[in-house]
Amino acid sequence: MTHLTTAPTAGTPAGSAPHGDRIGFAELPDLMSLMTGDEKHGPAATSTLDALWVLYDRVLRVSPGTVTAPDRDRFLLSKGHGPMAYYAVLAAKGFFPTEWLPGFGSYDSPLGHHPDRMLVPGAEIGSGSLGHGLPLAVGTALGLRAQGRPGPAVWVLIGDAELDEGSNHEALAYAAAAGLDRLHTLVIDNASATHGWRGGIASRFEAAGWSAATVDGRDHEALYAAFSTPHPGRPHAVIARVEPKGA
Rank of each mutant, 00 (worst) to 15 (best):
G37N: 02
F25M: 06
A92D: 01
A191C: 01
I201D: 01
D116I: 12
L55P: 04
G11Y: 11
P102L: 06
A146N: 10
I158P: 00
G143E: 07
R204Y: 00
D21Y: 06
D21A: 12
G200L: 12
G139T: 10
Y224L: 15
A202R: 07
M84N: 08
A26P: 06
G65C: 01
A26S: 15
L183C: 04
T140C: 14
P70A: 13
L28T: 08
L142F: 02
G199Q: 08
L144Q: 12
A10M: 12
E243T: 14
G80M: 09
H195M: 12
A153S: 15
V156D: 03
D164E: 07
D181F: 05
S109L: 06
T5S: 11
L52P: 04
S129D: 01
D30R: 15
H231K: 00
L4E: 02
D38W: 11
Y86E: 00
L119I: 02
T66S: 15
A208P: 00
E99Q: 13
V238S: 02
V120Y: 10
A146C: 03
V67T: 15
T6F: 14
F75R: 06
L4S: 09
R72S: 09
V89E: 03
T140V: 13
H169Y: 11
L157I: 07
S16D: 12
S33N: 14
E206S: 11
H184T: 12
A45T: 11
A91N: 12
P83A: 03
A176V: 02
L31H: 11
G166C: 14
R182E: 09
L28I: 15
D219C: 02
V59I: 14
R182N: 15
G217M: 02
L101M: 08
R145I: 01
I239S: 04
K93C: 13
R204N: 01
Y87R: 02
V215P: 10
L134N: 04
F205W: 07
K245V: 13
T229E: 14
V138H: 10
A222T: 04
V138A: 07
R234E: 08
P83F: 04
T214W: 03
T66K: 09
G24D: 15
G196E: 09
G37S: 03
L119N: 04
M118G: 06
R234Y: 01
R218D: 13
D219W: 05
E27N: 00
T194C: 01
N168I: 14
V67P: 01
T48N: 07
H220R: 15
L119G: 00
G126K: 09
G139K: 04
V154M: 05
A85D: 11
G217P: 01
T185P: 05
W53P: 13
G199V: 04
L90R: 05
V242G: 13
G131E: 10
I125W: 05
G37H: 03
I188E: 14
S109H: 08
I125G: 00
